[in-house]
Design a protein around this nucleic acid. Sequence first.
DNA 1: CTGAAAGCGCTTACAG
DNA 2: CTGAAAGCGCTTACAG
Lengths: 330, 330
Amino acid sequence: MKKVTIKDVALKTGLSVSSISRVFNNYSDISADTIKKVTLAAKELGYTPNSAAKQLSSKRKKIIALILNEINVTRGVAMPLEILGGVVDNLDRTDYEFVFYATNSEKQTQKSLRQFCNEKDITGLIIQGLRISDPYYQELETFDLPTVAIDLDIQNERIGTVSTDNVSATFEMTQLLKQSGNKRIIFLNGTKTATVAQARERGYRKAVQNAQVYDANFSESEAYKWAINYSNENGFAQIDAIFAASDLMAIGVIKAFRTLHLDQKIAIVGFDDITLASYVTPSLTTIRQDIGKISEYAVKDLIRQIEKNEINHRFVPYQIIERESAKIKI
Amino acid sequence: MKKVTIKDVALKTGLSVSSISRVFNNYSDISADTIKKVTLAAKELGYTPNSAAKQLSSKRKKIIALILNEINVTRGVAMPLEILGGVVDNLDRTDYEFVFYATNSEKQTQKSLRQFCNEKDITGLIIQGLRISDPYYQELETFDLPTVAIDLDIQNERIGTVSTDNVSATFEMTQLLKQSGNKRIIFLNGTKTATVAQARERGYRKAVQNAQVYDANFSESEAYKWAINYSNENGFAQIDAIFAASDLMAIGVIKAFRTLHLDQKIAIVGFDDITLASYVTPSLTTIRQDIGKISEYAVKDLIRQIEKNEINHRFVPYQIIERESAKIKI
DNA sequence: CTGAAAGCGCTTACAG
DNA sequence: CTGAAAGCGCTTACAG
């Protein structure tokens, strides 16, 4: 099966290569007749423009990359997949091409963001899952290609951001817990190298006098161990509620409580509303992030940045979901 | 920030463009001195070879595409993400480039597989999630590019396949159910347009005399409705066990049983071992697929196909996991 | 409305 | 061991 190129279409139609190209790029000054002939011939030959050649020859390129960091760490969390699906869907409605790139902290040291973008002729990029300890995070601080970062705080005015308003979400949830009679609330945070963790902690601290913060690295098993430990060392008698910075950690705590036979005594809330949240027993009171909207705005804002040089910092509405693990007055 | 090209490196080193290229492609007949000079200059300039130009000019291309179909249909199922992560990881250890493409039945009608591969200069592809009703499925029957299909039966000897041995898995599980005293076992299947559904049903039928098969489209809610319905029309008094062709459907049935207050009376088993399986109450007895191995073999077999023209049809070991929803003698 | 020609950034025989 | 030159498949001013 030999490759069909623009030349074959030119030959078949008796037109020049330039004319074929013009038809395929929707130039306005072409006769209807030519358009018809070219379209037909291309179809018969099964011609599709080669994208490498297009990229190389074209001045204004339109390629958007989605970079996902550490996608295969946590089983049970489908957020990266939802973002991927959302970004693809939204991009399909535009004339931008899509490039996907999966990275991790090791790969980041081998190939810089800049290198990747040069290599692939990237026009703009959406990036998610970065930790502030990642090489790309540093690089972003002085990055000059249109970029939208999901769930990231960066000191670079040229970079757009989209995320849940984590501060306000945890603040509101903590308030609700308090209004529902929970006085002593522990905040079980994830890795501080995630800016979402920092923001979530900030919201909690705003709402309480005597903050008590621990860290379980966004991991279910670490949260489990933490709870067992805490029970042994201090006991939970003085505690009314535990606010975990992710559902997975909240589930770890629930499991530990089951082991400790502490069920139902202490309110537990999480963050994310992953699928699991409604399935565990007790089902989890949590904060739902709207990943669909996040992906949508990531794409829209990036294109606006590319085309109009307009930069947005956007919060996407969240929703507090009350289930069995904590009764709150909404 | 101007683009740094091979010319800039040539200028800076005083060498020819060809020599620079040779260094970057690890040609053997170059002086150590040249290599050093070029490497240094490239680093200083921040030069990275442009992949579009490489693709266009190079004879032997090495680009592997992963095509995932309908990734954003089912919330709660992270399998496509695991495959994506696995394929990327395995490909990272080779010198093949990776291209990701998400499709769905509508997009398939707009752009054929062939077109996509021409457009992107694809050397070989891994494809997952296809239904036999999909346009690409038909196209695969006469496809001539190296291809490995995950979870798919195709009548094309040129196409490699990797999957769990679904027939043997459901056969074995059904046997176990029987040996544990379950006489009347219903098989609740998913869409027949998935070849895995056909295979799973076959294994079940091999193990029982009087097959009873229903269909719930691999959907939790349809499985829920089916169970409620069945209960109203026939009642479950005559039934010992329900074998759902996916965990999600098994969970739907569990929920229905809760609604019907039928808990614990009937054994329920699923297929997949999704994360949820161990979290629902009762936790789900099921068959675990090894997605890591599936991805690994998909990559390995595809490369073997490309390089040695060797085609494999591979089954990856599965594992029966006993939990609370069905006690079985393993 | 259409064609000829230069050029995008590489690779790769061919010479030497 | 290195360079000059053709070519990959397109796009895009420039003419006409």
